[in-house]
Amino acid sequence: MIKIENLRKSFGDLEVLKDINAEVKEREVVCVIGPSGSGKSTFLRCINRLEEPTGGSIYIEGTDITDPKNNINKMRQRLGMVFQQFNLFPHMTVLENVTVAPKRLKGKAKAEVDQLGKELLEKVGLSDKADVYPDNLSGGQKQRAAIARALAMEPNIMLFDEPTSALDPEMVGDVLAVMKDLAKEGMTMMIVTHEMGFAREVADRVIFMDGGYIVEEGKPEDLFGNPQHERTQAFLSKVL
């Protein structure tokens, strides 16, 4: 579903991604872990070209997203993204946040889109917050609203960039629960996270990154239980 070949990314002289090859299959949940500065967020942001790759190819359902001939706006509609800082639109209500993209980009009728929006808010446990502005939500509620917003375009793949890192600890569980439900429904997901417990429980595969490379990847029980690489062992001994 996602295939990444020889992905490289530099910021000026700083080479953040050196040679990334990876694959995510349909309905697979892949967690990317690693120390800060390892390039894992940049890696995720290259997949929908929020960062322009310096080299390599990224295939989304067979189409090369790095090819300038392909319409990036159309391709991004298939990829939902959730940010660490939520990035909700503060001048719109929660429901408007969720419905603005399908309304404008799919040209659907307001009633139909509002219905979809309400269903999504229900799903993330925010039915009672539809007409509230984001400023009046807690961090956990904001992130769940952001997930609903991303789902509103009915993407085939969801990307999560440290979705719980900006949350108070007591809010983390609600957001992870929503993500777990998504995984159970068979959504293809790629998650950059520091939540090792979540990765272990939900991921089908875990990728460990360090220094711009994928150092090791495997099933969570293997990677967490019996890491092969020295750097993986060192990282896990610090965070577990």
Partner: peptide, 20 residues
């Protein structure tokens, strides 16, 4: 992040400017 969120949903640069 507002521009990034708009672009990620599939809006063009101009649409994100205008709507967001």
């Amino acid at each position: 992040g507002q521009m990034e969120a708009g672009r990620t949903l599939g809006f063009s640069y101009g649409e994100t400017m205008r709507l967001i």
